[in-house]
């Protein structure tokens, strides 16, 4: 039956992503149509082969080894864990930073300094605390806006450029931006900005894909990215979020 695609059969196989009516339709069609049964049988056979493939097994000492290393790290991190949210944020940033990712380090150091500066004015009054939070949020917004501008450029280059050199440079930039992105997402989540944190997390797999994309990526691969950007409106979302983050009066040149 032509109206039932392979994609429908894949979803039917997992009984996921289809409503009950569609599942009943496919049930009936499978019962009535030998050709469809044959197609479905091929799919089952193919997916069954995956189950038969051997998995990589952990060795016998795995759990003990993991705990031994974990306990050491927990021990080392213990003094910081008692220091409240600022220490926890600092600890998170420190653990994620590495010399390899200089851009992310610079941005986040500035962010940490910015937050520390504003937090340094903390007083006992709630009003002051609210003011500090708002200022820290503005610092974060400004950095995220810059980050999103760079991400927009990256996506445009990746989807439009045919230059191998540009794509190689893009992969390096994507790796750096993926790092920054993770840090900003964590900072946003900790600041309570779940909407921004969710959006940044949505960007991460795309940045990781681009970081791993070979310079000689095929035409089909580039077209796949274009399709993905078009279908998800990702570029639009990046621009819209960036516009929301921009400090008032700041315009793109």
């Amino acid at each position: 039956m032509n109206s039932i695609s392979d994609n429908d059969l894949i979803l039917y196989f997992y009984k996921d992503g289809l409503d009950a009516g569609r599942i009943a339709e496919i049930d009936a069609a499978l019962h009535a149509t030998p050709d469809l049964r044959e197609r479905y049988s091929r799919l089952q056979h193919m997916l069954g082969a995956v189950d038969a493939a051997p998995a990589i097994e952990a060795d016998a000492d795995f759990t003990a080894r993991i705990w031994q290393r974990l306990e050491r790290r927990i021990e080392q991190s213990a003094p910081h864990a008692q220091g409240g949210w600022r220490n926890r944020l600092r600890e998170l940033l420190q653990s994620l930073l590495s010399p390899r990712f200089a851009v992310a380090a610079t941005c986040m150091l500035a962010l940490a300094v910015g937050i520390g500066y504003y937090a340094g004015h903390s007083s006992a009054t709630q009003e002051a605390s609210v003011r500090e939070s708002a200022m820290a949020a503005r610092v974060l917004d400004a950095y995220v806006a810059d980050h999103l501008r760079a991400t927009e450029g990256l996506l445009l280059t990746a989807s439009n450029s045919d230059s191998t050199n540009l794509r190689a440079g893009n992969a390096d930039l994507a790796a750096t931006l993926a790092d920054s992105n993770r840090l900003y997402a964590s900072a946003a989540a900790r600041a309570g900005n779940t909407r921004l944190a969710d959006f940044l997390r949505q960007l991460e797999p795309v940045l990781i894909e681009l970081a791993n994309q070979p310079a000689d990526a095929s035409v089909e691969s580039v077209e796949g990215l274009r399709d993905y950007l078009r279908k998800t409106d990702l570029l639009f979302q990046v621009r819209a979020t960036q516009a929301r983050m921009e400090p008032a009066g700041k315009h793109k040149t």
Binding site: D6, N7, I10, L11, G17, L43, H45, M46, L47, A49, V50, D198, R201, Q202, L203, E204, P205, Y228, K231, T232
Partner: peptide, 23 residues
């Protein structure tokens, strides 16, 4: 994976298509 539902489905569809080479 911080994707939307449609992108998640498409990723699975592409993966299954690539698997056909196994047979």
């Amino acid at each position: 994976l911080s994707l939307n539902i449609s992108a998640s489905k498409q990723a699975i569809f592409r993966a299954v298509r690539k698997l056909r080479g196994a047979l």
